[in-house]
Design a binder for these strands. Sequence first.
DNA 1: CTTGACACAGAACAGACGTTCGAGTATTAT
DNA 2: ATAATACTCGAACGTCTGTTCTGTGTCAAG
Lengths: 232, 232
Amino acid sequence: MMMVRKSKGITDKHIKVLEFVNDYQTRYGRPPSIREIGEKVKISSTSVVNYYLSQLEKMGYLERDNRVSRGMRLTDKVNQVVQAGNTLSVPILGPIAAGSPLPELEPGASYSTDNEADAVAIARSLLPSKEKGDGLYALRVQGDSMIDAMINDGDIVVMKQATEARNGEMVAVWLPNNNEATLKYFFKEKDRYRLQPANPTMKPIFIKKTEPLEIKGKVVMVIRRMEKSLVV
Amino acid sequence: MMMVRKSKGITDKHIKVLEFVNDYQTRYGRPPSIREIGEKVKISSTSVVNYYLSQLEKMGYLERDNRVSRGMRLTDKVNQVVQAGNTLSVPILGPIAAGSPLPELEPGASYSTDNEADAVAIARSLLPSKEKGDGLYALRVQGDSMIDAMINDGDIVVMKQATEARNGEMVAVWLPNNNEATLKYFFKEKDRYRLQPANPTMKPIFIKKTEPLEIKGKVVMVIRRMEKSLVV
DNA sequence: CTTGACACAGAACAGACGTTCGAGTATTAT
DNA sequence: ATAATACTCGAACGTCTGTTCTGTGTCAAG
């Protein structure tokens, strides 16, 4: 009853196909043939595989080159469904500075990487192996305010969406009372939070549990590129 | 006269083939067909292309899957000849610490990445576009001695072989008189060198030009992974 | 019930593709 | 010179591969 149709959406079969194409691609360095897909995804006709591939192309999950054997490649959009490739495209959502609030994220959303200019490619091998790539985003550090976190102006911090943290994890927090964004190691103590700078010579900040403290994400990685030289 | 044979070695044609396969692979996400290679490399017979591919396979530059269309993939060894893929495998040559000398490098050598455990994959898009990957190596920072360079224990510094530097570049230097390795911004002044810490709150070191100072490489990138949390 | 959209199967076709073979030319070693 | 080796070509073969077409069954809407 009613239009409870799944049409227009991705079905299990679609995902199976994408997964297999991705697996095959990473394993053999080339896309599979239509018949190879059919075998593994239990589709007994090449026309049906072709049918699915056309749909996936329309949905933007892959591009096809007509009349070329193995003429297909997965797009970045596939990362929302399946983890693909050696490299993960992490969107740079904006700047992070001490005085400005952190960019708001819709929880669970995957930020598509339409704009390649505003993204960094991270080699998957540098991330924890279980990391799928959901909820990963990056911020560009502005100003010297993170120096006590050993993070410099211009650095890129790769973060994972989170609203809580375990002791010892480095998190991005927003302190409404201080109107301040900061990156610190997080420790929950008796009745307060201890925010410990990465630089061991610096003193921690203590926040009472009654005071507001918003965890915006965990720091996964920090990248500093040295191309442009210091001009002092 | 004499065995000035190029045989057993790579010829221009071989490199042309590898370059094209690599270009095609990065552009289309799949290897080219034998005939596509022949067109671009100006080989008018498929059997000749096959001939070269067999040789390249024997030399270890690529693997082939018999009787499969586009059944070939480049190996890591290709990186020594051609820049391949989205990701560059940079070998970690050893630790860097204040008190221990930096690893010696044979100039111009390309350090093959046999051992994947001792290498980091760097997304090529994070490197300067002209960077080919020769003479790139990485060091794992040991201890807190580089804190004034905003570099932490456990960080990975990606370096490029160099014995000189321009003003403002961050270099790894060995100071024989002090028996110290350090990472600093480099400035040549009238009769001295100024080594400026990345942390603007720290004071520079001055080295008279009469004193020895060995530049071991330029810092290209710093990577800090946060997987393991701080335990204090 | 009829219609139409949708998912799937099977077969057939034409072109793409890897492989092999016979033969020719150039380069080097003996 | 002669033989061996390296390199190149062209063609033919059989299979792989993408495409297309016809047909079947399901299911919901009118």
